[in-house]
């Protein structure tokens, strides 16, 4: 089945959501995203990494190099306090937006 495009502006929200549970590296984020979306979303590294770097530069994420469970070195991203605040704001706005869209769709 054809994969869905990630809706505009939601990639940051999903990255933050995945990372709020535990710090993770880029590959982990892409795998988790695919799994959580039941395979509907497949994030392209060309979108994922620019997003991660921008969030890091904006102070929403911290990064550190750590060994993985398979003893490789990987760059782990962790949410900062600012990142948590942004996640809450975005989540709330997202729920309102999806609710509004649903209302429109069902009311029509």
């Amino acid at each position: 089945m054809e994969k869905l495009d990630i809706p505009q502006g939601t990639l940051d929200l999903m990255i933050l959501t995945i990372l709020v549970r535990e710090p993770m590296h880029g590959y982990g984020v892409s795998q988790r995203l695919a799994a959580l979306s039941r395979g509907e979303f497949q994030v392209n590294p060309g979108s994922l990494f620019p997003s991660l770097y921008r969030l890091e530069q904006d102070g929403k994420l911290n990064a550190e190099w750590r060994p993985t469970e398979n003893n490789r070195r990987a760059k782990y991203y962790r949410l900062t306090a600012a990142g948590k605040r942004q996640l809450e704001q975005h989540r709330e706005r997202w729920s309102r937006a999806t609710f509004a869209v649903t209302c429109v769709l069902e009311g029509a």
């Binding site: 590296h25 880029g26 590959y27 795998q31 590294p45 990494f49 770097y53 190099w65 993985t68 398979n70 490789r72 070195r73 990987a74 760059k75």
Partner: peptide, 17 residues
């Protein structure tokens, strides 16, 4: 350097899987 290593790691992990 970070970016380069990180992308390498990405390829390695994908290959390992």
């Amino acid at each position: 350097r970070d970016l380069n290593d990180e992308l390498q790691a990405f390829v390695d992990m994908t290959a390992a899987d």
